[in-house]
Design a protein around this nucleic acid. Structure first.
Lengths: 241, 241
DNA sequence: TAGATTGTTAATCGATTAACAATC
DNA sequence: TAGATTGTTAATCGATTAACAATC
């Protein structure tokens, strides 16, 4: 009941046609608009589901439907990645999947460390969706002596005091912050100082990071608040007049 | 180590000046652009932090900085809510906080049920950030007989077979799906049929919902994939010529 | 009054959509 | 060839920013 993931397919290896993948990941590659990047992950998920079902070919129309976007948006997004379809025919599922994965940088070795072994940290550490998409969880930290040393999934909880040492030893290049807001900035500073440039934070605070550090935030209460706004709007007309 | 929340202040009561709050939540109130709604939650968080620190007044400039946006964007966003500042002076923290909360619909009674008592479901059920922002977790469900009846926070895990009954009895008006992708659509359909119109899903699948149902999605692996894209771009120039 | 800061306007920018020429 | 579907263009739409008049 705890795994959120149904797509059995992991991040595929590089495409057999070397040229295209090289182009997608090359430094000179034009950048993809943020909104398109977010949707490319949806297409990738849908493609990998199709792959698992044995589907070999798909049209922009049906891939768009499976991803919840318009076919126009889908084709526009794919045009940022390259030109991997066949007019009159559609896209080869595996081929397109590999090229999107390459464009997103998923052919790298991503090693993720989680800071905070509370409920959320543990949930993330055990979450199958990371491993299955090519993200290796290599360490988990906590500050609580009662928690340090405990088993979480395949890992043992490290002391956050050893953060720098363990990050280096494990080669972690991404960090997920699943800790109280009060200590998030402090830990974030140390993570950045230790040379990690990609941080995903679940702490409900504005973190300051230096230029060149990629920070993304997920705030679960915020999501409920946004839902509340729409729900209230939907209900209002019934309640009055 | 498990709480993510540092803002001690809950959703405030309605403003003492009745007119404004009424206007904000009124059916005729013009709708707020989606991007602005998302940011309003940030402002609210920042304001409540200021409130806890005893700060009484704030300028658009410093509230914007605390929220990580430009003051131009902030003032534009606030203009959708109303006109609650004083030129030459700034905003009264508590007053503005209450009006934003009202505009977001946070003065409603939001009762949240969580489906899935795996790691993530348990983490969410115990997550202090919900309660502190006015969301009451009233039920948690699972399908596993080994898990049903277990204590999670203040609650006991209910059998998902009793979903409809328990949703009605508890008066839940929001549901969080923290369950495997394979069963998400089925449970979602039942939730919607039971009359719940606001759903937050952590399952990595495209859910189909009828018109009028508010669905939001959080996919944690997606967030890492987006980070990967930016990290790869940042690294690429170093790696080649 | 003079200084400060809001609320709003107009200009810029980016994202989405519709339509269709290219081409399998 | 005829039918189908991509990749791209141009038009629309929405979001962000800069600037400033209103006003405390």
């Amino acid at each position: 009941m705890s795994s959120l993931d149904s797509t059995p397919h992991a991040v595929p290896d590089l495409p057999d046609s070397a040229s295209a993948a090289g182009a997608a990941a090359a430094p000179g590659a034009k950048q993809i608009p943020p909104a398109a990047v977010a949707r490319l992950t949806l297409y990738l998920r849908a493609l990998n589901t199709l792959l698992a079902e044995g589907v070999e070919r798909v049209s922009s129309e049906s891939l768009a439907e499976a991803s919840g976007v318009s076919s126009s948006t889908l084709r526009k997004d794919l045009s940022h990645v390259g030109s991997y379809g066949t007019r009159g025919v559609g896209y080869e599922v595996q081929y397109l999947s590999r090229h999107i994965a390459a464009a997103l940088g998923l052919t790298h070795d991503w090693k993720v460390a989680i800071v905070g072994a509370g409920n959320l940290g543990k949930a993330l550490a055990r979450y199958g969706g990371f491993e299955s998409r090519g993200f290796d969880v290599v360490a988990i930290f906590d500050a609580d002596q009662m928690v340090i040393g405990n088993e979480v999934g395949w890992l043992r909880v490290s002391d956050v005091a050893d953060l720098e040492t363990v990050l280096h030893r494990t080669g972690a290049n991404m960090v997920v912050l699943a800790l109280p807001a009060a200590v998030a900035q402090d830990v974030c500073d140390r993570v950045v100082a230790a040379g990690v440039h990609s941080v995903l934070s679940f702490a409900p605070v504005m973190l300051q990071v230096p230029e060149g550090v990629n920070l993304r935030k997920v705030d679960m209460a915020t999501e409920l608040q946004i839902l509340a706004y729409h729900a209230q709007r939907a209900q209002a007309p019934e309640q009055t007049a």
